[in-house]
């Protein structure tokens, strides 16, 4: 199929960017979206132009690196997948596809479609861990009984790959879904309860300092999240935060 692509080009963080139109021809419907981008880039290199920079790594939906805003939605129109799992059969011959970077003040563009997601890293460093003694006499985690439901909910929250689609989809650029997943995966387990109050306070503070917006519960993040992280996590984080603030 033949497609018209409108892609954000920006030389560097300080440079002014703009949408640039490209044409690609003979794209197979079996290709992945990123393979289509590779073909476009090969063509650009052959013409002596600078290829389009975009993030990717595993290309199998587990690392959270790929990050394109495609036709107005993060990771494209399909549900429950990352951009690297998106296939060209989702589109039709003759389509025009908009490809943009995640947009948020806290995710500044580095180049073209690549944004700086270190803000997530700093939120994690503010409390997204548990402190365990690794001196050789660490207690076996399996020796601590945990209700099946809690273990499952914690595992669901831990499925977050930190891609940032929640922020990208949110009209407020809110990072609540990501942060709540990271808070929940520990808050649900006995090992995480010890530092629960400090964790939620510090992570929320870091989230606010990074300049993410306020959640207004539109629910867009949950719909667009490739890992199906539930809004229940946000409610849980709000509860954890209230508990930590009152006590």
């Amino acid at each position: 199929m033949n497609l018209t692509l409108k892609i954000w080009r920006q030389k560097g963080p300080q440079e002014k960017g703009q949408m640039v139109e490209y044409k690609v021809t003979d794209i197979s419907e079996h290709m992945s979206f990123l393979e289509m981008m590779d073909i476009l880039n090969e063509g650009l290199v052959a013409k002596g132009e600078v290829p389009i920079a975009f993030d990717h790594d595993c290309r199998e939906g587990i690392c959270g690196m790929c990050s394109l805003h495609i036709n107005g939605e993060p990771h494209g129109p399909d549900r429950g997948i990352t951009t690297c799992q998106l296939h060209m059969r989702t589109f039709k011959d003759g389509d025009t596809i908009y490809i943009e970077p995640w947009r948020a003040k806290a995710f500044p563009v580095i180049k073209d479609l690549i944004v700086d997601r270190m803000a997530f890293e700093r939120i994690q460093q503010a409390g997204g861990y548990i402190s365990v003694n690794t001196s050789g006499n660490t207690q076996d985690a399996n020796a601590i009984p945990i209700p099946k439901l809690d273990a499952d909910l914690s595992m669901d929250a831990a499925a977050c790959i930190g891609c940032g689609a929640c922020v990208a989809s949110c009209k407020n650029s809110s990072a609540m879904l990501f942060v709540s997943a990271k808070v929940s995966q520990f808050a649900l387990l006995p090992q995480g309860k010890v530092e629960a109050a400090d964790r939620v306070r510090n992570m929320v503070k870091q989230m606010d300092d990074e300049g993410f917006g306020n959640c207004t519960n539109t629910g867009a993040c949950e719909v667009e999240c490739p890992k199906g992280i539930s809004l229940e996590n946000i409610a849980r984080m709000n509860r954890e935060y209230l508990k930590a603030s009152i006590i």
Binding site: N71, R103, A104, K171, S173, G213, N214, A220, V223
Partner: peptide, 19 residues
């Protein structure tokens, strides 16, 4: 504040798809 959290707008934003 929320408007300020996205300083560059999307050229295409399909909000209706998810909310």
């Amino acid at each position: 504040r929320n408007k300020g959290a996205r300083n560059v707008k999307y050229a295409k934003f399909n909000g209706a798809a998810s909310s």
